[in-house]
Design a binder for these strands. Sequence first.
DNA 1: TTAATTGCAAAAACTTTGCAATCGG
DNA 2: CCGATTGCAAAGTTTTTGCAATTAA
Lengths: 148, 148
Amino acid sequence: MQVDELKSRFEQFLKQKGYKITKGRFEIVDKIASYGKHFEIEELVRWIANQNKTVASRSTVYRTVRLLQDFGAIREVIKLGNRTIYEFVAGKPHHEHLICVECGKIIEFYKDEIEELQDKVCEEHSFTPLNHRLEIFGICKDCMEKRT
Amino acid sequence: MQVDELKSRFEQFLKQKGYKITKGRFEIVDKIASYGKHFEIEELVRWIANQNKTVASRSTVYRTVRLLQDFGAIREVIKLGNRTIYEFVAGKPHHEHLICVECGKIIEFYKDEIEELQDKVCEEHSFTPLNHRLEIFGICKDCMEKRT
DNA sequence: TTAATTGCAAAAACTTTGCAATCGG
DNA sequence: CCGATTGCAAAGTTTTTGCAATTAA
C-alpha cells in the first residue's frame, strides 16, 4: 500500500471516530513509514527529535501510536523484557517473528498451517480470536556461526 | 512434580551457580506454588505482604522471580499492554494461551502440530529456537454469550 | 465558537540498583 | 571470615495524565 493511500484511510478513520485531522498525526505516519524497520516508541521519539524539524512531542507520539494501533497500521509485535517493539503493518500480510536474543535480528515468517491450527484450537474452545502473536526466541544463523 | 522435589532441584541449581540457600528464596517458591494461578509480580508482592508472616521484601521477590525464570520454574507467558503475567511451570508440560480481552480469563492449550511447524520454520531459517510464546487474544465463550 | 489536540511537566506504574547491615557456608 | 543476600529508599524506565494554550471544524 502506498503511504498516501494509508494516510487517506487514516483520515477516514479519524473522521469516522470524530477525531481531528492534524498535521502532527500525519507527519508521525510519514516518519514511521520512512523509518522502515521495527521500532520502539522511545527510539521513534528520539529519532523524530533529532530531525531538523521536530514534528511532535513525546506525548503526541505516544498518543498517535495508540491511535495507529486502533486503526491497525501498527502493531505490538515483540515483547521482550520491558521492551515493546512495534512494526508498521500497513498493507503487509500477517506474519510472525523469529527474534535473535544475541544480536536482536528479527526474521519474519508466515505459515498458513499454523494459522489454520490456531483457528481450530479457538473453535474447540468456542473462543473468538481477535489477534495473536507468535514469538520464537533463539539464536540466528550468523550468531550461531560466530560461536564456533 | 511435587513442590518438594522442585525445591530440591532449585537448591542444586543455586549451589551449582554458587548462590546461597536462603530461607526467603524457598518461601517465595512455596508462595508461588500455593498461589495456584497466573500472576503478576506486584500482585504477588502484595499477596505476600498481606500474609501474617512476611517472607520477603519487594526487591527480594523481584530478584527471586528472575532466578526462578533462569532456573525454569516460572515463565513470562503473557505480555499485554504494560502487564507481564507469569506462570508457575514446574513440571507442567509446555502449552500456549488463549486470553480473553474482556474478562481476562486465560485458557491453556497445546497443539503438537503447531510445535512441529515451528521447528520446521526454524530449520528453514537455520534458526536455533530457545523458547517461544503464542498468545491468542480474543473473546471467550462466556463473554460472547453475555454480549447478546 | 467550541471541542479536540498539543506540549509540558508532573505523576504513575513497574523494575532495578547502591548501600549498609545481615546471613550462609 | 568473606562473599552473597537482604531491605530500604532512591533512581531508572516507560507510559499516562492534568492543565493551559492552541488549533481544527
